[in-house]
Computed example of a mutant assay.
Amino acid sequence: MPTTMNAASALDEPTVESALSITGQVRQPLSLSLDDLREYESIVAAPFDLRCFTTKRFIRNVGGYRGARLTDLIEKAGLLNESPTDFKRMVFIAAAHDGYAVTFSWHELFNTPIGENVLVAYECDGRPLAVEEGAPILFSGSDRHSAPRHVKRLARIVARLLAP
């Protein structure tokens, strides 16, 4: 099962054994391996063409990803809310090992259909993804353009509360 992290290591890079960490404004920081991700309910995304957002150049065809919903992972970590409505000002930063980062808002993930299709993938076309292939991969299956929020080698999800 997923392991918890102490506060001192909450912002550290995931270890070799872990695939990614979930930290920030959460009750229980998590460090998750690819095997841990397989313990969550999985969803399968439809195959798609990965295209560069700016040039529209075809990069490659991607078969169906299988993975855990990002919302399930966030719910497991739990959100810290000093005020009952703090969650409405939460954003989530998904960062790769190479520094590439994308964002999601709480409303987007938990209050629209988009959240149902944001997954942290560990398989593609029915076969396990290796670290060399980019595992774990964050993918937002409801976006109009797939490339901007296609994050290979996802290292961490950080929950942040925006100031009012």
Rank of each mutant, 00 (worst) to 15 (best):
T3W: 03
M5I: 15
M5Q: 09
M5V: 15
A7K: 14
A10R: 14
D12M: 07
D12L: 12
E13Q: 11
P14S: 10
T15D: 05
V16I: 13
E17D: 14
S18Y: 01
S18L: 05
S18T: 06
S21Y: 09
I22M: 10
T23K: 12
G24E: 00
G24K: 01
Q25C: 11
V26G: 06
V26I: 08
Q28G: 02
Q28T: 15
L30T: 00
L30P: 00
L32Q: 01
S33M: 06
S33I: 04
L34N: 08
L34V: 13
D36H: 12
L37H: 02
R38E: 11
R38L: 08
S42V: 11
S42T: 13
S42L: 12
I43D: 03
V44P: 01
V44R: 00
V44C: 02
A45R: 09
A45P: 02
D49T: 07
L50E: 08
F53T: 09
T54F: 12
T55I: 02
T55D: 03
R57S: 12
R57D: 11
R60Q: 13
V62I: 15
G63D: 14
G63M: 09
G64I: 04
Y65C: 12
R66E: 12
G67L: 07
A68S: 12
A68H: 02
R69V: 03
T71V: 15
T71H: 03
D72I: 00
L73V: 15
K76G: 00
A77P: 06
L79Q: 01
N81M: 15
S83N: 10
P84T: 00
R89K: 13
M90A: 05
F92N: 07
I93K: 14
H97C: 06
H97P: 02
D98V: 08
G99V: 11
G99W: 09
G99M: 10
G99K: 05
A101L: 06
A101P: 04
V102A: 13
T103S: 12
T103M: 13
T103I: 11
F104H: 10
S105I: 08
H107Y: 13
F110P: 02
N111S: 13
P113S: 06
I114K: 08
G115S: 08
G115V: 10
V118A: 02
L119Y: 06
L119N: 07
V120W: 04
V120S: 04
Y122L: 03
E123Y: 01
C124S: 11
C124I: 11
D125Y: 04
G126R: 04
P128K: 11
A130G: 13
E132N: 08
E133Y: 10
A135H: 04
I137E: 05
L138C: 08
L138D: 04
F139E: 04
G141R: 03
S142M: 14
S142E: 12
D143Q: 06
R144H: 11
R149E: 04
V151Q: 09
K152N: 10
R153W: 15
L154W: 03
L154S: 05
R156C: 12
R156T: 13
R156Q: 13
R156F: 07
I157L: 14
I157T: 07
R160V: 09
R160M: 13
L161I: 08
A163Q: 10
P164L: 09
P164T: 07
P164Y: 08
